[in-house]
């Protein structure tokens, strides 16, 4: 059976693309490599800047997708994208008139920044770990204690050529501010420090939230990258940085160190780029045809993109792109008839 449009990846961009296609009367087939759809958002607790529960957004999207009658296939990983459709890793070929690539990003592996001891020191966590802890409603140190001093480090796996990640992952800054506020709400007497390089508050309400974090929640911001984390005798974490605004080294011991990990280009990008119509940017994110009028288009007329497959984006931007991509697919299909 020939499906009209295949959507690769069942994260929010893929879900919204499939939904928008179905709403236009185009039959989509959503392929997800893991056993369930929802992507990275399934592990997230609350969304900036409104503290909307991620489950609310995901729940609404899932319900509407279900109602739309769009076909969803999980445990289906795409190996290859070509003119006729896609080929799965199990060898199955699926034909389609058009393909929308919504394969998203990978989380940066914090172990690569060896100097922070992630995976070695139990009180070093990633921002994703912290979201899981929020979800379990159990934010405690590895020893089960309430943290009284927490540091969040921005730009872990972003703007760092030592780990092959020259780009800015954009959303970590605001995530750091959001998580700092959530921690402060949980532990009002705790001292919370954000170590940042630049604070990039690009979205509506973000800057306001940053100011709120500083002024209302008393969260401390230190401009400087932590150079090294090590464990103290009582299993706390000693960190070193430069307080660059005063030009002096700074050191302190914290109960928890949270690494705000960046977005890494999806592992599948390279594989998809074996198709010459799918170009990679130097960052290894997928390069759309251009950044303005064709930002969801590939070099082929029937392959489209949506979401973080092309660059780091927030939830709203990814959803908007999904709608745009569905719109472009519809235009393409109607022009062919």
């Amino acid at each position: 059976m020939s499906h009209k449009v295949i959507v690769v990846g069942g994260g929010i961009a893929g879900m919204q693309t499939a939904l928008s296609l179905a709403e236009r009367g185009i039959q989509p087939l959503l392929l997800e490599k893991s056993e369930r759809i929802g992507g990275k958002l399934t592990g997230w607790h609350q969304l900036f800047p409104s503290f909307t529960p991620a489950s609310e957004v995901l729940g609404d999207l899932s319900a509407r997708l279900k109602d739309s009658g769009a076909e969803v296939r999980t445990n289906s990983e795409v190996r290859k994208i070509d003119k006729q459709g896609v080929e799965l890793t199990d060898g199955t070929s699926l034909e389609a008139d058009a393909v929308v690539v919504c394969s998203g990003f990978d989380l940066f592996n914090a172990r690569l920044k060896e100097e922070y001891g992630y995976g070695i020191y139990p009180n070093v966590y990633t921002s994703a770990d912290l979201e899981a802890m929020f979800n379990e409603n159990r934010v405690l140190t590895a020893e089960g204690k309430k943290p009284q001093r927490i540091a969040l480090l921005h730009c872990v796996g972003s703007r760092d050529e030592k780990v092959g990640q020259r780009h800015c992952s954009r959303v970590c800054c605001i995530t750091g501010v959001k998580q700092a506020i959530e921690l402060k709400k949980l532990y009002p007497t705790a001292d919370i420090y954000n170590f940042y390089m630049d604070i990039r508050m690009f979205g509506p309400g973000y800057e306001e939230m940053y100011r709120q974090a500083q002024q209302e929640y008393g969260i401390h911001f230190v401009r400087g990258r932590i150079s090294e984390a090590s464990e103290t005798i009582d299993h706390r974490v000693q960190i070193k940085a430069e307080d660059t605004l005063v030009g002096r080294p700074l050191k302190m011991t914290v109960d928890m160190l949270i690494l705000l990990i960046g977005m890494k280009p999806g592992e599948s990008n390279r594989r998809f780029a074996e198709n010459s119509a799918i170009k990679l940017a130097p960052s290894n994110f997928v390069q759309p045809h251009d950044s303005f009028l064709h930002n969801v288009c590939s070099e082929a007329p029937n392959i489209f993109y949506a979401g973080t497959v092309t660059a780091p984006k927030n939830v709203g931007e990814s959803l908007n792109e999904a709608i745009t991509a569905a719109d472009r697919v519809a235009q393409y299909l109607s022009a062919r008839q």
């Binding site: 100097e115 090590s230 464990e231 103290t232 005798i233 000693q238």
Partner: peptide, 8 residues
């Protein structure tokens, strides 16, 4: 082996 904060 002792892994102390200023080990490195």
């Amino acid at each position: 082996v002792i892994d102390y904060p200023e080990r490195r």
